[in-house]
Design a protein around this nucleic acid. Structure first.
Lengths: 316, 316
DNA sequence: TGGAGTCACTAAATCGAATTAGTAACCGTA
DNA sequence: TACGGTTACTAATTCGATTTAGTGACTCCA
């Protein structure tokens, strides 16, 4: 269980006493407060004392004074968890840590209550809500970030299929606990991508949530749009469900129909047939999101289409 | 991105002014401080003012005063994420919320640094580290909780196989990013379960991390322990990898070898052959863990073997 | 040599809630 | 009628870091 209690944690006052100055001076030295003139030897004395006592600022006290904790909350509710999200979180976490902030992740579906609660509770510097982001709309502050990256990645997915000769493509999207906004943003990206590739408007198949429903949906698609030769899935799990349904229908992949995943997950490699998909490296986007959340300039982070690679396997 | 800032949030002082009493009285009323005698009409005046102003206590200030935030941190690093974990978290979250605490989940692999950092930063009431819990050892404070539940569930898994006539069972465990301690605890549970069922000591197959390695491991098992007729996997993903490897080896499941998963995940149902597994309802354990973390009596939570059901499908 | 300006600091206020130590006013009773 | 006890509150302190407003001591230039 690991409850750890402060065993007489050192405060700024302790450091002050130890180094023979006032708490104010300790603060000035340790925070390198601009406009203060403190000689190098005093600074060294203070720093040494802080080190000796193992002083770490009490962040709650600091947060009370500053009016906000050095903390960013990310709510992932409703966003599928492929490798891309993992990378995004890793990048975000790492960059925030570098900026002396802490990332905390929540899984709440009801983003509203979560957001309000956490804000009330801890006054984080920022609350990032992935699902809200996918509203696609407007001034969410994420432009150029992961979301625009998603547009580029979606283009890469469709381009791969187009290059292999597919013109009539269907978009497979899930109906489970994934947030609708996320799905519809991906769809609009896909439509635009198809257009820019000179493909006809792609159709839509909703696979799931159950296996039977997936089978029914694909059978219907087969009847109503027999020209479709490839399926671009919303994510790997959707693709796998589609593969299962196609097998149930006795169709062979990829000879009769190709299937392509998105945001590589762990199961595609061991499926039968194995799943062709797109590996997304979202770490850089995570870093950028971190800087943006703190109101810093995001520098040196790629905003172009790099960061995704085709994982070519059997299904497409 | 959703940064929300306090737009002039009401403080206890505001409530005091509004209701014509002192901040102390406000605190007494709203916290129902024992030993204070405040007439009902005054109480009502204070509460009404609080309501009118939309007052919510500033939790950072409260945390500074109390020495700990009303918050519990759960680190899931290295624990596989089947449905069981999800349920555990849901139960934990819900119960903590009921107790006016907030749950925050982190994904850090290096639990140590995480723990230290978060404790320093926010002084949570408790930090739960699932991986550490699985050290299995001693006084972790979790006895009787999810971990002991795991022992019972493991027994249920092996019993199902035993009842279907299997005597020589191999335990399949993963070699990926799952914490070793978790794996070894499950193994010791499984050994004890086998013993209590009167089965011979079960063997061990390490499947993975790659498909090729899984194939090699199962081929070796086949050679060296041909009497084995069933595999009890560490979790669903391990089971699926084993199924894939067996297919690669041209073996048929379940006629030549049965495979059983653990802690039902989403993919087993759509696999070929579909995966027989165990569904774990860990929500009750989550609730119990919540109360325990806050030092309360855990009441009315099942500690016996209820809370898991066999999901019978094709593979075993 | 006196006034302005810098240096090297410190005292005190602040953030918001909780809590300890009081303090008037009243009530009963010895 | 004076004393103890309760009622209904309030003032002041605390948590720990940050920050504003100072304050002596010294330097420099006129």
């Amino acid at each position: 269980m690991d409850i750890e209690r402060d065993r007489a944690r050192a405060t700024a006052k302790d450091v002050a006493r130890e180094s023979g100055v006032s708490p104010s001076t300790v603060s000035f030295v340790l925070n390198e407060t601009p406009g203060q003139t403190i000689p190098a030897d005093t600074q060294e004395r203070v720093r040494a004392a802080a080190r000796r006592l193992g002083y770490t600022p009490h962040r709650i006290a600091r947060a009370l004074r500053e009016g906000a904790s050095r903390m960013v909350v990310l709510n992932t509710a409703g966003v599928p968890s492929g490798r891309g999200l993992g990378g995004f979180i890793a990048g975000l976490d790492d960059e925030l840590r570098r900026l002396d902030h802490i990332l905390l992740v929540t899984h709440r579906r009801d983003a509203d209550s979560l957001t309000r609660e956490v804000i009330q509770a801890f006054a984080p510097r920022a609350v990032l809500d992935l699902a809200a982001v996918f509203d696609g709309s407007e001034e969410s502050g994420w432009e150029g970030g992961w979301v625009d990256g998603m547009a580029v990645h979606t283009l890469a997915q469709l381009r791969y299929l187009a290059e292999r000769g597919h013109r009539h493509i269907a978009l497979a999207c899930p109906r489970d606990d994934i947030d609708e906004r996320v799905v519809s943003l991906r769809l609009s990206h896909a439509r635009r991508a198809a257009q820019s590739l000179g493909l006809p408007e792609p159709g839509l198949v909703v696979v799931g949530p159950s296996r039977d429903e997936a089978v029914a949906a694909l059978a219907r698609m087969r009847r109503e749009r027999p020209s479709v030769t490839a399926i671009a899935a919303f994510n790997d799990d959707t693709a796998l469900l589609a593969l299962t349904a196609l097998r149930d229908l006795g169709m062979s992949v990829p000879s009769e129909l190709s299937v392509m995943g998105f945001d590589e997950g762990p199961h595609g490699a061991i499926w039968q047939p194995s799943l062709t998909t797109l590996r997304i490296d979202a770490e850089a986007y995570g870093r950028r999101a971190a800087r943006r959340a703190l109101g810093l300039e995001a520098e040196g982070v790629p905003s172009d289409g790099t960061g995704s690679t085709i994982v070519r396997r059997e299904s497409a």
